[in-house]
Design a protein around this nucleic acid. Structure first.
Lengths: 339, 339
DNA sequence: GTGAAAGCGCTAACAC
DNA sequence: GTGTTAGCGCTTTCAC
């Protein structure tokens, strides 16, 4: 592998000049610049990133930590960051946090060792204090999918309350009066906000959500399935079901069908996330689109901006909203066949 | 951030000793080692990876390039590599190749600049010559999901022929006689091998697959849907359908249902991959399990081994097989209701 | 506009 | 066992 010295020697200039040419650093004569560029091409020279990271202050590297890349949601998130990375000529470093506090912390540490300019963190398990401390130490840290008021300008997040409200509103408009919800066992943050949105909208319409009609479980297909089974066993009545995410919604549909109930004829189901599974199931799932790829892209660009020492802080936070995508799992009550 | 010098000074030793302690390099006195370790802890010292990558020969980094992380298949692949990376104390560098030859090459180059010890490449578009040349230059390069005889020991791949055979055999055992297949437009490699496996097994049973019953399209839900629509429009008769992958199978099911056909009562459908979507659809998809996460994990460990200069080459290639997972999209012919 | 040279933090001979 | 020291390839003042 050719080094900057080789280039300098052959081009008959100093390494400093080559460096200037590489970084478009103004002050180089045209003839000289052309010569250097030619040699670079001939030698197929590529700067050693480790060396420039060591010598310079910046590494051109973005780090991402998510719980598990094999989950479509997080893969999509990573893809969004990758897009930003590519467009900014950065490398992408990944770490799975595996849904554990300690490995989440380890993952961040490992990214730090690499001097990542920017770090995008989908943190599920660290407490706010830790994150705030981290944010103080790492200028390019951005928290994705979580809101922490003290570091609001570092947070790129989704308005879960309004998302849930829109979903609920949609169902109410369709004439539904009896609701059930299957939610994640982690009753903090997102699930909590969603429940809040649901009940708030329901109240506005003088509708009630009985606590008995809320069933919690793990946020996957099996969880959704099991939650609805329980609901059914307990003889809960509902014509509309709000699920915490698409996976739970799909499990719910399975359970409903297995119980001889039709979707959407007997029960309308609405999901959240709009992953590919939402277009795979039958009926196709009406769901709230979570613009995670776009958010991740945005977060990465933000993180890069923040990591720039010239950047001056603002108080702006970065809030996105979910929007409904209508497919086939919701019907108006009038269209529903009486049981 | 503390440096190795700080640690050395405080511990009253040389940087060489600190380096030895860090790398468990034998030759250090117990007392000394303990002291150094203590200081490392106190200072919360973490070696600068860029510096050690520059000075040493190894970077403790694994690179992966896949077409697109947001596709579940590739996310899962990445997760497998990540597991290996974590277990070997390595960092994970990612690059999307975006289904383009040039960005695939760029992605590899960018990984090389980082001096990745190991590179896992799911290559769709580079030609064999390029890959062979690359393999010569990069000791730690492993090709995933593709077989190139000249560098067989660098290939971790799936036996697509036998996978397709097993799927076909399964259908034949269920009494099916009239087949159709929806395959990917890229009739090279994998799709080709699958077709080969299908026809071979069919021949063994004196069954025929008319070319008119093979429909090709893009390897996603829409493609599967469109392919089956065409088949139906052309009045092709079949009781069993083999899809190139789960996504196409799901599209196929959509099209079948839309045409008033029931799955599996009227038509049995079998997929390939066993992604999460296979458990989401209704009926749940019977499909061939592609052990991609396990293969990726294996590939990463292999790549790490190969990158070790002490490693001596073998002629072994690394072949995995798919296995069937029975769910609800296939029925025996006797169980099928006549139309 | 260009070059000389001092590091960045670490590793690995080689000495002792 | 432990220390000395010469780089690894690049960036960046500071001269000229």
């Amino acid at each position: 592998m050719a080094t900057i010295k080789d280039v300098a020697k052959i081009a008959g200039v100093s390494t400093a000049t080559v460096s200037r040419v590489i970084h478009d650093g103004g002050q180089v004569g045209d003839a000289c610049r052309a010569r250097v560029k030619k040699v670079i091409k001939e030698l197929n020279y590529r700067p050693n990133v480790n060396a420039s990271a060591l010598a310079g202050k910046t590494t051109n590297t973005i780090g991402v930590v998510t719980p598990k890349l094999s989950m479509t949601f997080f893969g999509t998130l990573a893809s969004g960051v990758e897009k930003a990375a590519r467009e900014n000529n950065c490398k992408l470093l990944m770490s799975n946090s595996l849904y554990e506090t300690q490995s989440e912390l380890d993952a961040i540490e490992s990214l730090r060792e690499h001097n990542c300019d920017a770090i995008i963190l989908h943190s599920e398990y660290s407490d706010e204090k830790t994150l705030i401390k981290l944010a103080k130490q790492i200028p390019g840290l951005v928290i994705l999918n979580r809101y922490i008021p003290q570091i609001a300008n570092r947070c790129v997040w989704l308005d879960n309350v309004s998302g849930a409200q829109e979903a609920t509103e949609y169902l109410v408009e369709k004439g539904h009066q009896e609701f059930a919800v299957v939610t994640s066992i982690y009753q903090n943050r997102d699930p909590g906000s969603r429940i809040e949105g649901i009940t708030r909208t329901l109240k506005e319409h003088d509708l009630m959500l009985s606590p008995d009609n809320i069933e919690e479980s793990t946020a996957n297909i099996e969880g959704g399935e099991q939650a609805v089974k329980t609901l059914l066993q307990n003889d809960r009545k509902f014509t509309a079901l709000l699920a915490y995410n698409d996976l739970m919604a799909i499990g719910a549909i399975h359970a409903l069908f297995d119980a001889g109930l039709r979707v959407p004829e007997d029960v309308s189901v609405i999901g959240f996330d709009d992953l590919i599974v939402a277009r795979s199931c039958r009926p196709k799932l009406t769901t709230m689109h979570y613009p995670i790829e776009e958010m991740a892209d945005y977060a990465a660009n933000l993180a890069l901006k923040l990591s720039d020492p010239k950047h001056k802080a603002t108080n702006q936070t970065h809030l996105f909203v979910a929007n409904i995508v209508e497919r086939d799992s919701v019907a108006a009550v009038s269209e529903q066949t009486p049981e």
